[in-house]
Design a binder for these strands. Structure first.
Length: 271
DNA sequence: CTTATTCCCTGATTGC
DNA sequence: TGCAATCAGGGAATAA
């Protein structure tokens, strides 16, 4: 499940590998048409060849390729998407959905078991990422956190996962940040005190930086641009640790539902 | 404006 | 052991 640390790991991998390269051929494989959200799959595949990749950036969980004609190729991996950079004669990758051939005999291969991911080719990236809140890796001050929770009656976990409030956190890292800050995921967001908001902001930053240091978490499908797994799944404190002892106090980690998502927490350390 | 629910999609896991 | 039901979950769409 690529969240901010996984997408950022891929971005950094791709920077050195594809910036300066041009697309030579683009194929949307049969059955994968739905992944191409804009324009039509045929126009998408026809327009990209000849365009050079000038930069790779990230907003929340979105990857943005700035192209030489000023347009942007935008990719969202959702649950099971991956972007692999391979030599063109490398063995086939399973679940290949879109193949971007580059002008140096390499390929960007978009693979996606469940076909839930999305790609766009647009002139104006704000049309896609404009609704996102501030990036979770930057600008998470107590003041911004306070502005996020104002006028909302949702739980703090729901707010952290709301990409229009804060962009980049999903289930894994919102749970980990709340554990680190000692905050119960069902707490009403607006009930948090200033000190708790400050701790939460620090926890978000710490969790994301540590996960990026481990090149992301590979619980199921996530791999980086070279097809390698991350290591942070070995370091999570609560995510998918139902029944296992809390590293802080030994109490078994519990699993509950919060705003429709399974949620893990320590009932003793997070009140 | 808000929050809650459904849907997408298929491999892995669970339950009988 | 076998097979069907359930689960996983980001975000869009829809309902309330």
């Amino acid at each position: 499940m690529p969240e901010l640390p996984e997408v950022e790991t891929i971005r950094r991998d791709l920077l050195s590998r594809v910036v300066g390269r041009a697309f030579s051929r683009v194929r949307v494989l049969p059955g994968a048409e739905r992944i191409v959200r804009w324009p039509s799959p045929a126009e998408f595949a026809r327009t990209l060849p000849g365009r050079r990749i000038e930069d790779v950036s990230r907003r929340g969980k979105y990857l943005l390729f700035r192209l030489s004609d000023g347009r942007y190729l935008i990719v969202h991996l959702r649950m099971t998407g991956a972007i692999l950079h391979r030599p063109k004669d490398a063995p086939d990758d399973p679940y290949l959905r879109i193949c971007f051939s580059l002008d140096d005999s390499s390929e960007l291969r978009y693979t996606d078991v469940r076909k839930l991911g999305s790609v766009w080719l647009v002139e104006e990236p704000e049309a896609i990422v404009g609704k996102l809140g501030p990036d979770a890796l930057e600008g998470v001050t107590p003041q911004t956190l306070r502005s996020l929770i104002e006028g909302r009656s949702a739980s703090i976990k729901a707010v952290l996962m709301d990409q229009r409030a804060l962009a980049g956190l999903g289930n894994i890292y919102s749970e980990e940040a709340l554990f680190l800050a000692g905050i119960h995921p069902r707490r009403l967001a607006k009930s948090l005190a200033v000190g708790e908001l400050r701790r939460l902001g620090e926890a978000i930053r710490e969790v994301l930086l540590e996960a990026m240091g481990h090149r992301g978490s590979s619980f199921r499908d996530y791999v980086d641009a070279e097809g390698r797994e991350g290591q942070h799944q070995r370091h999570v404190k609560v995510y998918r640790r139902t029944g296992e002892p809390c590293y802080g106090c030994g109490t078994p980690i519990e699993r509950i539902k919060v705003s429709g998502r399974s949620t893990h927490f320590c009932p003793r350390c997070q009140r």
